Amino acid sequence: MMQRNSRRHASRFLPLLLGALLLTACGEPAKPAQPREIAADTSCALDGMILRDFPGPKAQIHYDQGEPDFFCDTREMFSILLRPEQKKRVVAVYTQDMAKADWNDPQGQWIDAKSAFYVVGSPRRGSMGPTVPSFANEADARKFADQYGGKVLPFTQVTIDMVDLSGGASHDEKM
């Protein structure tokens, strides 16, 4: 008799226990990938160049699996993100706010690349020649464009034609 009551009692709580386990397993939603700082030996995912050896904005792409890819130039970031053959699931993209970062030695100042503003067509040089500087706000991007030239665009309006990497190493300043 006692054993039968225990089973009946346990069968009432089994659905509650399973529900609690499911909620625990799901937990809180995963926090978005946070930007990583560039180390002395951090190299570009495309060409192996050491990022700290070059001026201008850098970028990093985080995927749902594996380590993030780093890029010594925002043009490289765009060339990866805008390719139709890009198959990895991107969970975060960061670039640097060049209104706050030192152009010649940019460190930190990471911002969400998809909410940034970019200056396309400026002659200001990064690691791959003329680059596409990134800014956290439009006013800073416009100030840069007024000083150096170029057109201010949000992330969604930058096209693959604007960030063409043809010529590659021929544009490198220190190779």
Rank of each mutant, 00 (worst) to 15 (best):
M2P: 07
Q3T: 12
Q3D: 05
S6P: 00
R7S: 08
S11D: 00
F13A: 07
L16I: 10
L18D: 01
G19T: 14
G19W: 06
A20E: 05
L21V: 15
L22C: 11
C26G: 11
C26A: 14
C26S: 10
G27T: 11
E28S: 14
P29E: 15
Q34T: 14
Q34A: 15
E37W: 03
I38L: 11
D41T: 14
T42F: 08
L46F: 04
R52L: 12
R52T: 14
P55M: 04
P57T: 04
H62I: 05
P68L: 00
D69N: 12
F70W: 06
F70D: 00
F71P: 01
D73P: 06
D73E: 00
D73I: 02
E76F: 03
E76G: 00
M77L: 15
M77F: 07
F78C: 05
S79D: 09
I80D: 10
R83A: 14
K87P: 00
K87M: 03
K88G: 03
V90E: 08
A92Q: 14
A92F: 09
A92G: 13
V93Y: 04
T95K: 08
D97F: 12
D102A: 15
D102W: 06
W103K: 12
D105N: 14
P106Y: 06
Q107C: 03
W110T: 08
K114V: 10
K114C: 02
F117H: 11
F117V: 01
Y118I: 05
V119T: 09
V120G: 07
V120R: 05
R125F: 03
G126K: 09
S127R: 10
G129D: 09
G129I: 04
T131D: 00
V132Q: 04
P133K: 02
P133E: 00
A136I: 03
A136W: 01
E138T: 05
A139L: 04
D140H: 08
A141G: 02
A145V: 06
D146P: 02
Q147W: 04
Q147R: 15
G149E: 06
G150Y: 04
K151D: 13
V152A: 05
V152G: 06
P154F: 04
F155R: 05
Q157D: 15
T159Q: 14
I160T: 04
I160S: 10
I160P: 00
D164K: 13
S166M: 01
G168T: 10
A169R: 11
D172G: 06
M175S: 09
M175P: 14
